[in-house]
Simulated assay, not measured.
Amino acid sequence: MKLIVAILTTTILFITNSITAQNNTITATVINVTSDTGKVGYALYDKTNFRMKPIQGAASKIVNGKSVVVFENVAAGEYAIICYHDKNNNDKMDFEANGMPLEDYGASNNVMNFGPPKFEDAKFTIIDKNVSLEIKF
């Protein structure tokens, strides 16, 4: 009987920990938007889908140069966020003919090199706690 109780207790703890791990949140805040015009678009990626279809996407209005989104129900793992200032509300990042961006953008960890963000520069880890990030354009 003690063995059965021990097995049930272990199973319940394992299931509870698994469910909790799926309920992490990521709060991303862009702190230096140059105007309150438009919105900021955010995309959450893992290494497999980086810069392709995001795991989650969101947009947020800008108030006093700041924009905040919360990604919910995020499992433990490595992630990266890319965001951009959609000044004209057309739901896409605009580029010049030569490929240079016309709208400000940023990524988690605030590493900005020439060219698009790289996963290794922007990655962060979620284990069992919620994460808050400040992103600068």
Rank of each mutant, 00 (worst) to 15 (best):
T29G: 09
M93N: 02
A107C: 14
E78W: 05
A59R: 01
N73Q: 13
A97M: 12
L44R: 02
T29P: 06
N73E: 11
A75G: 05
F50Y: 13
I82R: 06
N17D: 07
Q56W: 05
G41M: 11
N23A: 13
V111W: 00
T37S: 13
G38L: 05
N90Q: 10
K61T: 14
N73Y: 06
V33S: 06
M93W: 01
V30S: 09
G65R: 01
T48G: 12
D86W: 11
K87D: 05
Y45K: 01
T29M: 10
M112I: 13
Y79P: 04
A76E: 12
S67F: 01
S67R: 03
H85T: 08
T29K: 14
N98M: 08
D104S: 14
F95T: 00
V69Q: 07
N109K: 14
M93Q: 15
N113L: 15
V30L: 13
H85M: 05
V69F: 03
T27N: 00
D94V: 00
P54N: 05
K66F: 02
M112A: 15
D91W: 04
A59P: 00
T29E: 14
K53F: 10
I31K: 13
K53D: 13
D86V: 01
F14E: 00
S18K: 08
T16G: 11
G77T: 09
Y79V: 03
D86H: 03
A75R: 11
V63I: 15
T20W: 10
I31T: 15
Y45S: 02
K61R: 11
V30G: 08
N49F: 03
V68I: 13
V68N: 02
Y45N: 03
I62M: 03
G57S: 14
K47F: 05
S18C: 08
T11R: 04
R51K: 14
K61S: 13
S60V: 06
A75M: 09
A28V: 00
K39Q: 14
E96M: 10
C83F: 06
T29D: 07
A59D: 13
P54R: 04
N23Q: 15
C83H: 04
M93C: 02
N109I: 10
R51D: 10
N17E: 08
D46H: 07
N24M: 07
A21P: 02
V30Q: 09
N109R: 13
L13T: 09
F95I: 01
N17R: 08
A43S: 14
A80T: 02
E96T: 10
N113G: 09
D46W: 04
V74A: 06
E78H: 09
F50G: 09
I62D: 10
I19C: 12
K47G: 07
G38C: 03
D104L: 11
V74Q: 06
N17T: 09
V63C: 00
N89V: 11
A107I: 03
